[in-house]
Design a protein around this nucleic acid. Structure first.
Lengths: 214, 214
DNA sequence: TTACGGTTGTGAAATCGTGCACGATTCATT
DNA sequence: AATGAATCGTGCACGATTTCACAACCGTAA
């Protein structure tokens, strides 16, 4: 990484960075060597100027007249997003959603790996979920002193979301992906992103025109 | 609904509307009769002025000096989001994620119901997933002429995402919730929202500080 | 009736994000 | 060496969104 000595990268830029990374990986698989910002626009639908601006927050990665080297750029973006090496992740909630996430092969593509699964249900603790043994959430601090995950995923009912978040933070988690429909209270320095299916559906429902929704 | 004769409601406003709806339902369950915008800020973490501005796109729902009637406001927002009555939803992809979504009780709370589940795997077609029989995705047009869903959920691998979207649109779907990590090409008038776990994790990884990520 | 504490709705200011437009750079060709 | 086509990086203007701040309003109590 080159600049960004300061800060203030817009959140939408970060989200797009992840998109670029995915597309660059595809392009690399297709043996493409070089791309221009308008090629990226072609593939991702994101405006070419936007792409260049996004990168400019972090340095200069392209060559005028040429474009970007696919492998190099992918590696740079991976570095920026801190996914050059495998990122361990822990997950609490071995229900349907948790199970789907642990089994999701797509995680590995961006170097994420779920290295610990926890639940509070004694019928589940000790069982296996894919390649993971489900552990007691009460042991999360101890377990994560081993795993050393800094990212945690919450896939539990809303009612226990805050409690789980607290434990995770105590266990050293700094970033939380929260699937429970609750706003988590977290201390300074901990980042939370919420994913709420129902909220997404509600936004979609809004766009239905009256006569359609009938 | 009262005004909004025009349009142009900011997307972030719509997303927050869904949050308000959830919180209002909780408040109603707690027998709270009236709330002020600062009560809402307390509960949701969303700025009180923001809340009032959001509502102002649709009309005047509060009384100066008093606040908002919880039940009334909830009903109004539900109307705005078109979730006053049950919204049928169809889902393609009876894998782990699809299964989790069909089984997710939270959907019902906002009046969404998955009324049709499809897949292309002959080992799955005909089987039951919770209360739904998995149907052949090839029959989606016919099946949805009965179900009349206008909202569709895509929970299939990226490679077949576009194909599934096309079929859905042919079947009359106007809004798509897409869990496949691909940018879908859709005709004018069809709205898509993407949910990408890996992108979310990547944004979270970015926020880890160097020495932590080691 | 008047005064007051609490609260809304909204214009206007401040902030934030996007996209254009252009100077600068690179390579290929003559 | 000079020309031209392609492409980057970025200042700036625009558009979108958030936040402020205040007039208008409501109910209560003196």
């Amino acid at each position: 990484m080159r600049k960004n000595n300061g800060h203030k990268v817009p959140m939408p830029t970060l989200e797009r960075l992840a998109t670029y990374l995915t597309s660059l990986t595809e392009l690399a698989d297709q043996q493409v060597q070089t791309v221009s910002s308008s090629d990226i626009e072609q593939v991702t639908g994101i405006n070419a100027a936007q792409f260049r601006k996004d990168l400019s927050y972090f340095g200069e990665f392209g060559r005028p007249g040429i474009g970007y080297n696919v492998l190099e750029l992918r590696s740079w973006i991976a570095q920026i997003l801190k996914v050059e090496r495998e990122q361990p992740v822990i997950l609490v909630g071995a229900g349907n959603l948790g199970s789907a996430l642990v089994g999701y092969a797509g995680l590995g593509i961006q170097n994420f790996r779920i290295c610990g699964v926890f639940d509070n249900n004694y019928n589940k603790i000790g069982r296996r979920l894919w390649d993971q043994e489900i552990m007691d959430v009460a042991t999360i601090v101890e377990a994560n002193s081993e795993i050393q995950a800094r990212i945690g995923v919450i896939a539990v009912p809303a009612s226990v979301g805050q409690d789980v978040a607290n434990r995770m933070i105590e266990a050293g988690v700094k970033s939380i992906l929260n699937f429970a429909p609750t706003r988590l209270k977290v201390p300074e320095g901990v980042v939370v992103r919420n994913v709420d299916f129902v909220q997404e559906l509600a936004v979609l429902a809004f766009h239905l025109s009256e006569d359609e929704s009938e």
